[in-house]
């Protein structure tokens, strides 16, 4: 869906859960890190952007508003990758529409990982495969909920640089929920802090 690429993600008066309404524009290829204590509503914010929970306010990708298209079309463009990925077929490959061999290699997974059964995946393998699965569907914007939570240091580095390369290369506006200060330093252009007073943008 190259027509959806290189467009900004724009939020107007978005209010999810207890979070007071706020505006935000994420430019193509820009990463906004979302930080805040657990339970502050970071995941709920991402769910609202993917239109998985009822919410106030408008979200647009470029000029196209979420409510102007069927919800599944919106979610394919503005793709949420949850902290815990789910796998419902027996074979890993059955969850993929394409065969993203290059991405597997970059993230340190063998080519035949697509032939594996889901039961033998470790949590780190699941996390990497879930990111590849989402990006291989060619979204126009990314919502990442702690994308490196289950990974060892070496894999964290690989995944970060692979993600940044994709985000910049395809011009994907990205919201990235992160706990680790060092990671925020490494990947984020801007930081959205969620506190008791609401969402606050920090440069």
């Amino acid at each position: 869906m190259s027509d959806a690429a290189r467009l900004p993600l724009r939020l107007f008066g978005l209010a999810a859960g207890e979070l007071p309404p706020f505006d935000l524009e994420v430019a193509p290829g820009e990463v906004v890190a979302i930080s805040g204590a657990s339970g502050s509503g970071k995941s709920r914010l991402l769910r609202a952007l993917a239109d998985l929970d009822p919410h106030e306010g408008r979200v647009l990708l470029g000029e196209a508003a979420a409510d102007a298209m069927p919800a599944h079309v919106w979610r394919r463009r503005v793709m949420l990758v949850p902290a815990e990925s789910q796998w419902w077929h027996d074979a890993v490959g059955a969850h993929f529409e394409a065969e993203p061999f290059d991405d597997l290699e970059v993230l340190g997974l063998p080519r035949d990982a697509l032939g594996w059964s889901v039961g033998r995946l470790s949590s780190g393998e699941k996390q990497r495969l879930a990111l590849i699965r989402a990006l291989s569907r060619d979204p126009g914007a990314l919502l990442l909920d702690e994308p490196t939570a289950n990974l060892d240091d070496e894999s964290v580095e690989r995944v970060e640089s692979w993600l940044l390369q994709r985000i910049r290369g395809r011009g994907l506006p990205t919201l990235w929920v992160a706990h680790d200060r060092a990671q925020i330093e490494r990947v984020a252009d801007l930081q959205l802090r969620i506190g008791p007073g609401g969402a606050e943008l920090v440069r």
Binding site: A50, L52, P70, A71, H72, V73, R75, R76, R77, M79, L80, V81, P82, E84, S85, Q86, W88, R133, A134, R137
Partner: peptide, 22 residues
């Protein structure tokens, strides 16, 4: 039991009929 699975399918852009099909 499988709400997380259904929602993950929705996140990947599947229409609701497909996400609950099985």
């Amino acid at each position: 039991r499988q709400r997380a699975m259904i929602e993950n399918r929705l996140m990947l852009g599947e229409p609701w009929r497909e996400a609950i099909g099985e």
